[in-house]
Design a protein around this nucleic acid. Structure first.
Lengths: 203, 203
DNA sequence: TGTACATCAGTGAACGCGCGTTCACTGATGTAC
DNA sequence: TGTACATCAGTGAACGCGCGTTCACTGATGTAC
């Protein structure tokens, strides 16, 4: 079956999309290639026409979904600013909302996979670290401009940490009321960190 | 081999300890029972004399290691207070330190496994949720007493979220300098949240 | 005190299964003539 | 315009392997006599 131009690229994109959903839903290790390929409407044998290994797919899937998260947050911030609202608050509300908590497979890969990514080999961790840098840049861009770039980045890292940590804890608890309290606490903490900045040299 | 009284309980403890290290180091799904039993100095067949299933071991291992984390943090806080230092700062420095970052297998199971725990069945998530509650209580006890219990708990949840999120991000990056910056930002953010408390009704 | 027996923690082979990866094959389509 | 051929994305069987779980067995020790 020799197919039309661009078809292979389209199939590759479809496999990456299917994988990135499965990875976020079930974990990387728990996801089998046969299931991913079936989601993409293919049989498992064709996998190696597109990727050299599962590892390469993992890297591609992480890069794709983290770029999507970055773009989503940037878009929400921009929209809020255009409406005269606070960009950071929009980011925090989007990330720490019930919809994101309830659909890990469509959400941020760091919230779904951070610890598992930390166990991957260096190239895979580098892909994730680059993506974190970009997401943190989006957050830093919403912070008061009077702080230095370095201070803004550090504050942004801390904000992203609360976001990731809060979403994970909210997903662990089965109690909807507690989960809501957690999300709200996380949102408020993120804004508290942003509003106050970070104190120097305390710890 | 009928063994002395208490030997079975001691073996069970040994298996739980080995499992809890492996789970934190490699992930729950990626950990095989044969490896756990070998670490405990046994062959894999004997596993079911102690546990009904891998799931039961997971619950026991999570409960044990999270209780250890709780006790460790409580002890650090107590020691600091007795020395006239700040209990919360001691907790934060212990948790967000290089030693904890570099030895996930000996550290907090939430930092190593939160997302994977969120994918477990309800009984397992309940074990983790209970343990989170206890750790959060330890943190809340170090907060200013003038806040209501409920406010303290919410602040403590947010602090624990920064702690978990920061450690995970620090473990992803391969850059030691960035990792140090991340840990410091997380420590400062935790204290910022504690010092300011949470603003009500903003988000 | 000495012997026979029951117990049961631990052994190691076996089970069915899904994994990542390989490979000989298929057949729809673009290209050459 | 019509035919023959080369390409190569995708198929499906097969591979060796490790998984969780089961089970017939072993043998050191506590208990009964």
């Amino acid at each position: 079956m020799r197919y039309a131009k661009g078809r292979k690229e389209e199939t590759r994109r479809r496999v990456i999309a299917a994988a990135s959903r499965r990875f976020r839903r079930d974990g990387i290790d728990a996801t089998g290639l046969a299931g991913v390929m079936a989601d993409a409407g293919l049989t498992h044998g064709g996998f190696y026409a597109h990727f050299a290994s599962k590892d390469e797919l993992v890297r591609a899937a992480l890069a794709a979904s983290l770029a999507a998260t970055r773009d989503r947050l940037a878009a929400e911030a921009k929209r809020a600013r255009e409406e005269g609202a606070d960009g950071l608050e929009a980011i925090v509300r989007t990330y720490l909302g019930a919809a994101h908590r309830d659909r890990p497979e469509a959400g941020c890969a760091m919230a779904a996979l951070a610890a598992e990514i930390a166990r991957q080999d260096a190239p895979t961790r580098d892909v994730a670290a680059d993506a974190i840098w970009q997401i943190v840049s989006i957050i830093a861009a919403e912070l008061p401009a009077d702080a230095s770039d370095q201070t803004s980045r550090q504050t942004a890292y801390a904000i992203f940490s609360v976001m990731v940590g809060t979403l994970q804890l909210a997903r662990v608890t089965g109690d909807p009321a507690l989960s809501e309290v957690l999300l709200r606490s996380g949102r408020e903490a993120a804004l508290t960190i942003a509003g106050r900045g970070l104190r120097a040299g305390r710890t």
